[in-house]
């Protein structure tokens, strides 16, 4: 892989834009097409591109085995915690509108409920994005051939 200068140069330029696009997709899931799944996969794909261009060892320097393992499980854990947070605020499990209790006491206005619902949905989208990206990166690292095989 040492001689692939063009691939390396191009992917070095492209990867930041791919990652920015992934974050855009996650953040705009409620306004248009997109969301946690798509954004997470695109983010994972940017790391996979890096690994393909620069090799497994350099790839592991960017995303250490420990980092991807921890991120794998963080996603589901945070998802459950958001659900529990809604219970704590007095609503049903994953009822985001009840999160309004944390920033407006007593009777919730329509605006506060919308804000709470938005916060909950953003939280879930980000959490899904983390899980999907981390799992895709992990699967690729494990499935691809290692240099020392």
């Amino acid at each position: 892989m040492k001689e692939h200068t063009v691939i390396r140069a191009v992917s070095r330029i492209l990867i930041p834009f791919i990652q920015l696009f992934a974050l855009y997709v996650i953040a705009h899931g409620d306004l248009g097409p997109g969301g946690g799944f798509q954004g997470g996969v695109i983010f994972g794909a940017s790391i996979i591109l890096y690994v393909i261009a620069f090799g497994m060892k350099d790839g592991r320097k960017v995303v250490a085995e420990k980092t991807s393992d921890i991120l794998n499980s963080t996603g589901v854990l945070l998802y459950v915690l958001i659900g529990l947070l809604c219970l704590l605020a007095g609503g049903a499990y994953l009822e985001y509108t009840s999160l309004a209790a944390f920033f407006s006491g007593g009777e919730h206005s329509e605006h506060a409920k919308h804000l709470a619902s938005h916060l909950g949905i953003y939280g879930i989208e980000i959490v899904i994005g983390i899980t999907v990206a981390a799992v895709m990166i992990t699967i690729f690292f494990e499935a691809a051939r290692h240099e020392d095989d």
């Binding site: 799944f37 996969v41 999907v132 799992v135 699967i139 494990e142 499935a143």
Partner: peptide, 20 residues
């Protein structure tokens, strides 16, 4: 079906790991 597609890639990954 959006969730179905993501689950399908997960099952494919596990199947390929088993094949390896």
């Amino acid at each position: 079906m959006l969730t179905g597609i993501v689950v399908s890639v997960s099952t494919t990954a596990v199947a390929l790991a088993l094949i390896i």
